[in-house]
Write a protein that binds this DNA or RNA. Structure first.
Length: 893
RNA sequence: GGGAGAUUAGCUCAGCUGGUUCAGAGCAUCUGCCUUACAAGCAGAGGGUCACUGGUUCGAACCCAGUAUCUCCCACCA
């Protein structure tokens, strides 16, 4: 036999991937005769490398796409990458820094040149890696969110939404990332639990500001007015230089004497008023709140309400600016340490408390977010959110698992306007152009802008050089949200054949972490621009964690390199390994054992194939395996039905497990063992024909999960024409046959008898092949007659006979209500056998009694459905028959 | 602080509209096997008061209420 004993994936994977591509199997085009099936890839970062999350996500997509392709649909999986503005820009900045180049020394054009060079060099690596996984994308359709055409789409949408009055510009409190030096949307901000310090600072009350009676009251307490203090609690002492007031609750009796007073900022000495607002909690901290409108959203709102000035003491990079007066140039956290020390020395620090708090951090750079007032562009969300919520509520779009519907609803009902401008260069520059008079126009190009500007200003003499384009770029998600439309050129050419055919796409596979970032917004864009949802099903994967449940991270070093894994276990092994334990929405606890299991499964399949290849046909032999064939055929049909149901419900893991068991247990452990001829003995032609047919069907069912090995065996199994690949073979259709369930049930009874004999072999320490005989005490020997050959072969029996009484010196077991005996001359332990029988009788009686109890319950008999009742009666009869049989066996001993 | 979901074998999970002695799978564990397809294997076995407490019902892992624990989402208490 020349076939290798173990399957070696490395030899075959690259070969088949190349052939599939040569054959053009992954290419899709609008074909009215076929049903469309389309999926758009969640575009990975253009400079990213494959990690375990991608592996899971793309394996699932590939399974869905390959199955659809086999079902005869026009399967279109669109790949591509995302320009990931903030992440990529950060990388490029870091890279330039290594080369001694600072971003601030470059012009926008120079920087973009560097960035594009980097993108050319590293961009798309991840797509090459996906090919090794077997991803069957239509690579001719590869898109990039920042390519010219998609940029056009983004600009069109911006202009359109602006015209519709949905985009506006304004000064708002935004999330500022001092490391990325850009504003972020609310969704890009991650709250983190930390232990923080609460500083209690005392502000001197300005004596002259106190009302006379208040002052005298305090004098009565023998306190000089200028020794009066007001203590506030703050977590950010470095912002006191930006204080513009201290607020107390008007109903707070402790501070009535301070109404209308002013206090002095420690160290700085600037006077600020004490203001009254019910917003302040009396029971939190000291009940006095320092108001810093520039650096806190609530304070900002308080400031607006009370008409207070705004003092912004921070630079873009988080260092203190001139307005701070003190600590100018220090980084905010360094400034905090300095000021705490100084406050303490000056006697202003009353106490410091540790407390559990939350800091907002940047999703991309991890920097602590600074709430900051700035001029930004926003998209109104309300009118888009409503229909987008509706389509999920009414299941036009189904989320898998459905529990995410709740999360989705809450978000959509509370959605706030989307901050879409970013202070970066890598991205689509906002198409807003400022006129010398400070007003602006929005247009697709500078030329159009000029026209509009002349019109708007009434100044026909305006030149291009008079216009200044907004420096900001758009949030990356402002391009990703158009992805399902833009990849089919639905903006450039809204009525083209591709978009009409492939849109709406069918399934979207992504992580729940970007349900709002991306999924919700794609739904909005789809409804706004196509009046139709972008996809029907959203499959939300879990996060890949390590076996201890920790997130995969570089620091922990617990993230395996996917390509190494593929090398080691084969792409098929890795794919199945990931899917073994990945129910939708649940985190996947990655363990190398899973991938090993996947690899072992490949090998199992390989060896099943190897076995059949070794068989010589003898045409003169008659067909002796009818029972095995009809049984496996029935099992196969039932499994296909089950498999389709799992796919319907997006239960990919269950689907895999179903085929896994079909192959390993039913096909290998039972079917092949039933039909396999003795060593070197030939097989009959009919059995071989059926077996090969079964194997082919199994290969088809397995192909979406294990594309490479199935293709390899598919071709080894038979001579195939140039277009005959399992990759495009027809997905098996379940053909329910009459009596199939009965066939399966009867075989299962026969196999139970086999197991009974095997148990005895185990218990008595008899080898698997020691010839034995079996005697059955039964009135109905039809099962034994029909399955005589099967039972004898699998249990290694020379003979099965029917007897009236237990043979002497035999060990028994009960299967299907019938007692069986294996005669074992001189190897019987009478006592043990008796004990075993008594135990069985006890159990059977207990069972009978429980059924009897149920049946003697009048209310049960009166209320239970007839079929339930009938089943119970049957159980009673069976139990009684069994007890009788066992009792007779006992007396015989 | 608000909301949602979860809690079933050592681990990861099934268990559909309540009805085969209070239950299944894969992995892991244990026992015995190198039986010429596969030791990346074969044949067996053990293992669960279905989180807890009540309730509804002839009957509850499943329905209801409460409790506990966990997870996720949302949230401006300095």
């Amino acid at each position: 036999m020349s076939i290798a004993k173990t399957y070696t994936p490395a030899d075959v994977e690259a070969k088949w991937y190349q052939r599939w591509q040569e054959q053009g199997f992954f290419k899709a085009k609008a074909n009215p005769r076929k049903q469309p099936y389309s999926v758009v890839i969640p575009p990975p970062n253009v400079t990213g490398v494959l990690h375990m999350g991608h592996m899971l996500n793309n394996t699932i997509q590939d399974v869905l796409v390959r199955r659809a392709r086999m079902q005869g649909k026009e399967a279109c999986w669109v790949p591509g990458t995302d320009h990931a503005s903030i992440a990529t820009e950060a990388k490029v900045v870091a890279l330039l820094k290594e080369q001694g180049i600072e971003k601030k020394d470059l012009t926008r054009e120079q920087f973009l040149e560097h960035a594009f060079a980097w993108k050319e060099k590293y961009g798309g690596i991840i797509l090459e890696q996906l090919k090794q996984l077997g991803a069957s994308c239509d690579w001719d359709r590869t898109r990039f969110t920042m390519e010219p055409e998609l940029t056009q789409a983004v600009l069109r949408v911006f202009v359109d939404l602006h015209q519709k009055g949905l985009i506006y510009r304004g000064v708002r409190m935004v999330n500022w990332d001092p490391l990325g030096q850009t504003a972020l949307s609310d969704e890009e901000v991650i709250p983190k639990d930390v232990m923080a310090k609460m500083y209690y600072l005392r502000y001197a009350v300005v004596a002259s500001s106190l009302r006379p009676q208040a002052a005298s009251q305090n004098e009565s307490l023998e306190l000089a007015a200028d020794s009066l203090w007001l203590t506030v609690a703050t977590s950010r002492p470095e912002t006191i230089m930006a204080d513009v007031a201290v607020a107390v609750n008007p109903n707070d009796a402790r501070y009535t004497h301070l109404h209308g007073a002013t206090v002095r900022i420690p160290l700085l000495g600037r006077e600020i008023p004490v203001i009254l607002d019910e917003y302040v909690s009396i029971d939190f901290g000291t009940g006095a709140l320092k108001v810093t409108p520039a650096h806190d959203l609530n304070d900002y709102e308080l400031g607006v309400k009370h008409n207070l000035p705004v003092i912004d003491i921070l630079n873009n990079d988080g260092t203190l600016n001139d307005k701070a007066v003190l600590y100018v140039g220090q980084e905010r956290f360094a400034a905090r340490r300095s000021i705490v020390k100084d406050l303490e020395e000056a006697g202003h620090l009353v106490k410091v408390e540790e407390y559990a708090s939350i800091v907002q951090t940047s999703e991309r750079t991890k920097a602590v977010i600074e709430p900051r007032l700035s001029m930004q562009w926003f998209l109104k969300m309300e009118h888009m959110a409503k229909p987008a919520l509706e389509v999920v509520e009414n299941d036009t779009i189904k989320l898998h698992p459905a529990k995410f519907k709740n999360t989705y609803r809450v978000w959509m009902e509370n959605v706030r306007d989307w901050c879409i401008s970013r202070q970066l260069w890598w991205g689509q520059q906002i198409p807003a152009f400022y006129l010398p008079d400070g007003t602006y126009v929005v247009a697709l190009s500078a030329e159009e802008a000029l026209e509009l500007a002349r019109e708007q200003s009434g100044n026909a003499g305006l030149q291009l050089t008079d216009l200044r384009q907004d420096e900001d770029v758009l949030d990356t998600w402002f391009s990703s949200w158009l992805w399902p439309i833009s990849v089919f050129d639905g903006f450039k050419d809204p009525d083209n054949a591709d978009i009409n055919y492939f849109y709406p796409t069918n399934d979207l596979v992504t992580g729940p972490d970007i349900l709002f970032f991306w999924v919700a917004r794609m739904i909005m864009a789809g409804l706004e621009y196509r009046k139709e949802v972008p996809f029907r099903n959203v499959y939300l994967t879990g996060i890949v964690r390590d076996a201890q449940g920790r997130k995969m991270s570089k620091q922990l070093g617990n993230s395996p390199d996917p390509l190494d894994l593929i090398k080691q276990f084969g792409a098929d092994g890795v794919r199945t390994g990931m899917l073994f334990s990945a129910p939708a929405g649940n985190d996947l606890l990655y363990d190398e054992k899973l991938v090993e299991q996947g690899r072992n499964f490949s090998n199992k399949l390989w060896n099943a194939f190897r076995l059949t290849q070794g068989w010589e046909v003898d045409a003169s032999l008659s067909f002796v395996n009818e029972k095995a064939v009809e049984w496996f055929s029935a099992r196969l049909q039932a499994t296909i039905t089950e498999l389709d149901e799992h796919f319907e419900k997006f239960r990919i893991s269950d689907a895999l497990m179903t085929v896994y068991k079909l192959v390993w247990d039913d096909f290998c452990s039972f079917y092949l063992e039933m039909v396999k001829p003795a060593y070197l003995a030939p097989i009959d032609a009919e059995t071989l024909r059926h077996t090969t047919g079964f194997l082919e069907t199994l290969l088809k069912l397995l192909h979406p999960f294990m594309p490479f090995i199935t293709e390899e065996i598919w071709h080894e199994l038979a001579e195939r024409g140039p277009k005959e690949y399992v990759c495009v073979a027809a997905w098996p259709k379940a053909k329910p046959a009459a009596g199939a369930a009965d066939l399966v049930a009867r075989m299962s009874k026969a196999l139970d008898i086999v197991a009974g004999v095997r148990v005895i072999r185990n218990q008595k320490g008899l080898g698997p092949n020691k010839p034995l005989t079996l005697a059955a005490k039964t009135d109905d020997a039809s099962l034994l007659t029909d399955y005589d050959a099967v039972i004898r072969k699998l249990a290694a029996l020379t003979e099965i006979s029917v007897v009236d009484a237990a043979p002497a010196a035999s060990v028994g077991f009960v299967s299907g209500g019938v007692e069986f005996f294996v005669p074992l001359e001189g190897q019987i332990d009478l006592g043990a056998e008796k004990e075993r029988l008594e135990k069985e009788i006890d159990y059977a009686r207990g069972f009978r009694d429980s059924v009897l109890k149920k049946l003697s319950n009048e209310k049960f008999v009166a209320n239970a459905k007839p079929d339930v009742l009938e089943r119970e009666r049957q159980k009673l009869a069976d139990a009684e028959a069994k007890i009788t049989a066992l009792e007779q066996g006992l007396t015989a001993l």
